[in-house]
Structure formats: C-alpha cells, structure tokens
Simulated assay, not measured.
Amino acid sequence: MTAVIDTDVAIIGAGPVGLFAVFECGMLRMKSVVIDALEDVGGQCTALYPEKPIYDIPAHPAIGAAELIAQLETQIEPFAPVKLLGRRVETLMHDGEVITLGTSRGETIRCKAVIIAAGAGAFGPNRPPLDGLEGYEASGAVRYMVARREEMRGKRVVIAGGGDSAVDWALSLKDVAAKVTVVHRRPKFRAAPETAAQLDAAAAKGEIEMVIPYQLHGLKGDGATLYAVTVATLKGEERDIPADHLLAFFGLSMELGPIADWGLGLERNHIAVEPATCATNVDGVFAIGDIATYPGKLKLILQGFSEAAMAAHAIHPRVFPGEALHFEYSTTKGVPAG
C-alpha cells in the first residue's frame, strides 16, 4: 500500500540548511517531512567531507562537518520530523492550497508548502580526464573526498585544485600525511583569503610543496596501486610526483533531476527566488541554500540558515491563515513542545 503522509511543510534536501529549516518551521509550530536522495542526512557534509573543518559557523571557531550535522540533528529532535532518505522527489502537483509530492519509492506527501534545500542537486565530482582513472578510483588511490584523515597518515598525498576544498585539505593533512603536494595551474587560489594565506605560510615553512603552474597529466602505477602523479605545464614540461593518493578537487557537477521539470525559474541550474522570502515563481514553493540564487547571494552555510528562517516565516500564513504571527526571540519563548 502506498504511504500517504500529510504535513505542513515538505523539505527537499537533508543537508545542514534543510535540517535547520526543520528547526525554523518547528519554532513556528509547523510540522515537516524531510526527503533526501542520500541514505543519510547531512548532504555534502556527510557524503563528501565529514571530517573537513568549517570555520564560518557563528560561535564555532572550527567545527567538523559531521559534528555540525550531529548538532543540527540534536537541535531538531524536539520537532520529530519524518525523514524519508534514499529516495528522490519525482513529481510536484498543485491541488488548490495543497501541494502533492511523489517520491521514487512511491510515497505521497501532501503539504501546504515546499522548501527546496537541495544544495548542489544530484551532485558528483568533476573527474580529471586521465587514462586508467577508473582502476585507481576503485582502489581508493584517486579520491574526491576524505572520509577520515587517518586514512592519509604516513601517505604521500597529491592534492589537485585551487578552491576551498583543495586548500582546506592541504592544511588539514599536512600534519598527518608523510608529504602533501599541491598542484595548481596558477599561483592564485579561489579559496578564502585567510586559508589561502595559511597555505602560503605552510609552503614557506616547507610543510607543503607547491607545484605551480602545473596541471594533471597522467597516473603511474599498476592500474590499482599508485606510484606517481605526472603533471605538466602548458608548454609541455612534465614531472613526476611520487604519490600514494591523488585527491582531485575540481568541484561538483550539478544536476537538478526532476526539479528541472517543475516550471521553476532557473538560472544556470539554480532556482531564482525573491530575496526577502525565498519564494520561487511557483506558488507555495521556496528555495534556500546553495540551490537558490538572487542578486547579492553568497554561497555560505550561514546565509542558508538565514534563508531557512525567512522561508519559514513566509510560509506561516499558508499553514495558519488568518493567524497573526507575533515574532518572539527563542530566548523568550524557548522551544515549542512537539
């Protein structure tokens, strides 16, 4: 028998922003169902970098991604959200004031509003075009994430990329790995200025080797065990870097999946929203976090948290029509009883 679930708000995406949306809705006495294609909550924090430190969460000078998710789960426990994991939302239909969602496992969810907090959508790593890559991926010699820092202890690690992930992991692994080498095609990194400065300082101390301006060119090994990473300049100058692991951080390829067919206003695979409410062009559907875009948007978790609060307040009149919402600080009213 197909399950039918009635709720106030359906939240698509169980990453940090989606989880915080549960809290914000709960604080306004709105029930939530959370749906995610992954088997666990946490989104990219859980799937790609559970041990990566995050530095821009207020009151946490540094917090591991997995720890952040654990704290968010604790925060939403009083509201007992229904979690539907390991399935995708395939369909969205309007029936008057009710929105009906259908999942890939056959559940039907009826709600008053939808919050899309799908992060990068259906995401996967951008893979470098290297011969024999699949064999080294299968053995774990080439990776696009680090689940546990200890796996790199005593290893020769080559990190390729110029963004936050490459810089953060170089800094994180320099005290664990036998050697960390960073390969990038130009001296400037697209990372936060503070961490980029830390990388420069570590390189100056000899803690990290910088191989610039080079790009990945090939892999040397027996097809499973990696011996060296070949890099080359644009002029064709090559060199081999002894390595046990290659960590390639070239971003994520993003695919919206069925969301792309719901008539939403899309801008380069992102959903355009009203900045003040996070409402989309489809009545009752809101988008927050990395998937949402508007002028001045910053792709920061903390901005996604703010958007969760704005969306919840905008949704309240849909769930409780005619009821005035007298805003109170959480320090005044505490957490509503479930």
Rank of each mutant, 00 (worst) to 15 (best):
G154H: 11
K155D: 12
V157Y: 05
V157D: 04
V158Y: 04
V158A: 12
G161H: 04
G163M: 06
A166G: 13
D168R: 10
D168G: 11
W169M: 11
A170H: 03
A170F: 09
A170R: 02
K174I: 05
D175M: 09
D175F: 03
V180P: 03
T181V: 15
V182E: 00
V183W: 05
R185N: 09
P187A: 07
K188H: 07
R190V: 01
A191W: 04
A192I: 13
A192V: 05
A192N: 15
E194H: 04
T195P: 00
A197R: 07
A197E: 11
A202P: 07
A204W: 06
K205F: 02
E207G: 08
E207D: 15
I208H: 04
P213S: 09
Y214Q: 12
Q215G: 12
H217L: 02
K220H: 15
K220T: 03
D222H: 06
G223K: 00
A224Y: 01
T225G: 10
T225Q: 09
T233Y: 04
K235C: 10
K235G: 13
K235L: 14
D244N: 13
H245P: 09
L246K: 02
A248D: 00
A248L: 02
F249C: 11
F250K: 05
F250H: 15
L252R: 06
S253R: 14
M254K: 15
E255I: 02
